[in-house]
Design a protein around this nucleic acid. Sequence first.
DNA 1: CTTGACTCTAGAGTATAGTCTAGACCCCAT
DNA 2: ATGGGGTCTAGACTATACTCTAGAGTCAAG
Lengths: 130, 130
Amino acid sequence: MFIGEVAKRTGLSIDAIRYYEREGLITPVHMRESGYRDFDNSSLDSLHFIIQAKEIGFSLKQIKHLLLLKENPDTTCAEVRELAQGKLNEVGHKIKLLKKMEQQLNKLLTKCEAESNGSCPIIEELSKEE
Amino acid sequence: MFIGEVAKRTGLSIDAIRYYEREGLITPVHMRESGYRDFDNSSLDSLHFIIQAKEIGFSLKQIKHLLLLKENPDTTCAEVRELAQGKLNEVGHKIKLLKKMEQQLNKLLTKCEAESNGSCPIIEELSKEE
DNA sequence: CTTGACTCTAGAGTATAGTCTAGACCCCAT
DNA sequence: ATGGGGTCTAGACTATACTCTAGAGTCAAG
């Protein structure tokens, strides 16, 4: 399928997809004689993986590593294992921090729901941005 | 304490601290007549919060919101509650994705440990970057 | 075989989150 | 009271991850 179709299916922009290709995150797709890129389902899989990894805060550089790990499941060497272990630790750390943050937000919400009186001076402040 | 001390204690750069102040993430500290910034422990607390929130993937803009929520625990209004709820959902989503990623990495690692034979063609590829 | 939508490359531009530089001023131990 | 290290502002620069533009070529329905 052509790049527009891929964009539609993944929600990514055409430019982003070409950028990921340039950066080596997706393996060079088949090229038609016309110069048009031709994508298959494995490209879609890689892109979905990239989207998810990005959502949890990995950089494209890191995602490139993760993809290499993912797409070479027969790899067995110590160095690769170490890399994966490093990522795993990173992920574990992030989960821990997020849970702490979750707790804090929950506490704030509970408090907020408990004493629901009128005015709130920070609303305007909050509404200003984003 | 002066900014250099704060940098030492938080691990942040002096420039980053000043940048956070410019961006309104930390409330304007006391200024000496000389023009030197004078920090106290509450600044340190804010900075530690920023560091953690950054680690789990919040943008400075989002952290600004979170700090406003955090530092105004008496706020009770619906809009603020909604904002906090939104962040909470975001955090929940991130946790879910991270756990999925954790699982995938664990599977890879188990596989890697199971069949530990010799050569590994992607090591060089992996060593190249970062 | 034309036409409108799609795709191509190369290169410039944008937002975020800083980092670095220059030139000037401040702190304080000796 | 002075010298070495710390701090100040303003503004230029950087990396990451895109986004946009221009100008040219391609696809496929009518």
